[in-house]
């Protein structure tokens, strides 16, 4: 224990723990011994505190490390009326394929719920809700939804296929355009969807599904 409730000791300990936490989160595995040698007066405290926070941070870490590998493309090249051509992108919720709708002979984008989430009733509802919500929107900057269906228990929805690059590419390429331009690009779309800010859905780490797409000219299509 810091001697006589010395607040200076607590303060320094706290700073050291903060630094230790930060290093741990950056992927380093700092040694407790190193800290004890550097701050011998606090060595006993450090030996109590640092291994404990390392355990907490390590337990948190398990989430990231144990994440399953990205889902492989579905074994079927055919989903009902749709002939799958290639994967366009994937996000936390689904995989988007370029596909041909055989009966109508047209090119479509097919968003399929990730295999991993198939048994999660909540995620299925959310996926369906996403399709319904998108289908209600009508705007030149928003990809139209043609339909929703299920194939062997796997829900999917059908969108117009649009050539161009994903919004994520635009956002991550400041050389091409200022990052804020991407936000400005979608503001007309935002007014179409009530008061919702036009924002990559928080569930998607990288918004790679082509719901909002930008042509090579940088203009929304």
């Amino acid at each position: 224990m810091p001697g006589q409730d010395s607040s200076r000791d607590y303060d320094l300990l706290d700073r050291l723990v903060e630094e230790f936490n930060d290093r741990f989160r950056r992927g380093e595995r700092p040694s407790v011994h190193e800290y004890c040698e550097k701050y011998p007066a606090l060595a006993d405290d450090l030996r109590d505190v640092l291994p404990a926070v390392a355990q907490v941070e390590g337990a948190k870490d398990a989430r990231a490390d144990d994440l399953p590998a990205p889902p492989p493309p579905p074994p079927v090249a055919q989903m009902g009326d749709f002939h799958i051509l290639r994967e366009v992108g994937h996000g936390g919720m689904g995989v988007v394929y370029e596909a041909e709708q055989v009966s109508l002979g047209r090119r479509v984008a097919l968003k399929v719920l990730t295999q991993r989430l198939l048994r999660d009733a909540k995620q299925r509802r959310r996926f369906e809700r996403e399709a319904r919500a998108a289908a209600k929107l009508h705007h030149t900057n928003i990809v139209p939804v043609h339909g929703y269906g299920e194939h062997d228990g796997t829900p999917y929805y059908v969108m117009q296929f649009i050539h161009g690059m994903g919004l994520d590419v635009v956002v991550e390429e400041p050389a091409r355009m200022a990052p804020t331009a991407a936000h400005r690009l979608c503001s007309p779309a935002a007014s179409n969807s009530h008061r919702r800010p036009c924002w990559p859905h928080p569930g998607q780490k990288t918004p790679r599904n082509p719901e909002t797409r930008v042509a090579h000219t940088g203009r929304p299509v």
Binding site: P2, S7, Y10, D11, L13, D14, R15, V17, D45, D48, V49, P51, A52, V53, V56
Partner: peptide, 13 residues
């Protein structure tokens, strides 16, 4: 806050 955190971590330990 520093004191609270360090003590909490000790109790956690």
């Amino acid at each position: 806050a520093a004191k609270r955190y360090v003590r909490a971590i000790k109790r956690l330990k």
